[in-house]
Design a protein around this nucleic acid. Structure first.
Lengths: 208, 208
DNA sequence: AGAGTACTGTGAAAAAAATAACAATACAAC
DNA sequence: GTTGTATTGTTATTTTTTTCACAGTACTCT
């Protein structure tokens, strides 16, 4: 099993390989890619060990090949089908983010409570009424979801998603959700992140 | 120096104490608060050790007092003044998130490139033209910033912020920024997070 | 008042993550 | 060809983070 941290870095490496490496560059050494990713070369090599990828001691890593190998691990056999609940500013931002980025992620359904938004296509994606969560998630065999609803609704939405078969949730609502231990949960509370950054910014300012 | 992880959890504990604990509850045991935060009681106690807070072995922690002690560490002596660059969907979402939440964080200035948005007040916050970053950040003595501009501009914006005196950056652009080692940087790439969640969701699905 | 209970604070242990170190390897220069 | 060099894959070490375990403590019950 690949660790949480490693998966995150692998995702970054791939993005760098696909988007930030000059198309003419065929090979890359660990220290070059590591520097782009702001990690140590040893860390990078260890991460690649986790996916069993091998480079050449003299030439380094074959850019296209490595990107492909990371993809084989991260993406699985077919594109990941994702649902997003809560089409406020944040939800819409995420939908267009993901669409704009070449990746194996597909947001195939979005949900909202507000009838003015539902039934229409927003940011190129069908928006259903929140009542339809179970129905659509089951039918579309979705196992990954993003929650961007207000705090008060988040737990209820999470329960319904889990019930419908979702196995991984990315939660932007600032409330720690309760999910069964077999559901992977990632909380991305904006305020908490900002409080942390503000704290360390102050530390740096004081040290100066 | 308090660790990264601990600061994040402290922020969560405080939020739970202020928002999720019944106002009639005066005392709370470590296992109660730990359960709300989905951490182990030992973890919680150790985190509180970091801020030097002590509870009573028989009664537990005094809710108001603990919230105050966490605040004293996290917030410092005065509210943290924050700048946000990039008033797209994501930027606006964050501004209203932070405003809506009772906290010591104040987004005192926002910036955008687009003239239709600048010079006006959006989500209750003055929006300046991006040219004014140095001027405003210096004048307002801002040391914390959020970046929500498109990928291509992110590094340039970061450089200008750092130049103007910023010591902590919360970056939502999906590109790993380069900053001096004395600037605290937190990357919150949405796509990377989603790829990670999709990966672990698939793992859970397969294990089933 | 004394025994029992359930908690805290913290040192010790374990687990996890990052870093360093180095043998093995493939190429380049001569 | 041989020597030298720079890199990889992987083991060993260090550091960080989390969990365990328990002495110490304040309260309750009898």
């Amino acid at each position: 099993m690949i660790s949480d941290r490693t998966v995150e870095r692998l995702s970054l490496y791939r993005w760098l390989l696909e988007m930030r490496v000059d198309p003419g560059t065929v090979y890359l050494f660990s220290h070059q890619l590591a520097s782009m990713a702001s990690v140590s070369p040893a860390q990078l090599r260890r991460d690649l060990m986790a996916i069993g990828y091998s480079g050449s001691p003299s030439k380094g890593y074959l850019v296209k090949d490595l990107a492909g190998s990371i993809g084989a691990v991260l993406d699985g056999s077919e594109p990941s089908r994702v649902a997003l609940v809560g089409m406020g500013n944040l939800g819409r931002a995420i939908v267009s983010f993901v669409r704009g980025r070449k990746s194996q992620l597909q947001i195939v359904a979005t949900f909202d409570k507000d009838c003015r938004k539902t039934g229409r296509v927003i940011s190129g994606c069908r928006c259903y009424n929140q009542d339809k969560i179970e129905e659509v998630v089951e039918k579309e065999k979705i196992i990954t979801a993003v929650i961007t609803v207000p705090c008060a609704e988040a737990q209820k939405v999470a329960d319904r998603l889990v019930n419908a078969g979702v196995r991984g949730i990315l939660n932007y609502a600032p409330v720690p959700l309760r999910v069964p231990e077999w559901v992977y949960l990632e909380n991305r509370d904006v305020t908490a992140a900002l409080e942390k950054v503000a704290y360390f910014a102050r530390q740096e300012e004081e040290r100066k």
